[in-house]
Amino acid sequence: MNMAGAFVLDKAAILDRLGGDEEIYTMMVDMYLQDIDHNCATLAAAATSGDAYSLQREVHTIKGLLATFSDDEGAAVAYQVEQKIKLGNLQGMESDIPGLDARLREVAGVLASHR
């Protein structure tokens, strides 16, 4: 699965969705950064558990997280991975899951640098 291009923060788009509320935006960024390690660990654990449904659910969660920060490309990749798992196709997971992990961390880095 091809990973998306570099994440570019579109704060205006996120704020637009949040009705211009900077307070909520800051709170969400803080939470994302606070939870990043936990989310990556949970994803990795699901990948090694052999439980396809758990893995699909975690990928679904990551898709939501990326979409929350307007990472449309990252969310699209997560969606493709989610659909593959849903269809029972686990081929390529060894690179897909680390790819999602890397994307989560990349987004975290960008968010942290814009605080």
Binding site: D21, E23, I24, M27, M28, D35, T61, G64, L65, T68
Partner: peptide, 13 residues
């Protein structure tokens, strides 16, 4: 919601 970030966001809204 099992996602803390979503819980926080929805709570704020």
């Amino acid at each position: 919601d099992d996602s803390d970030i979503n819980l926080t966001l929805i709570k704020a809204l």
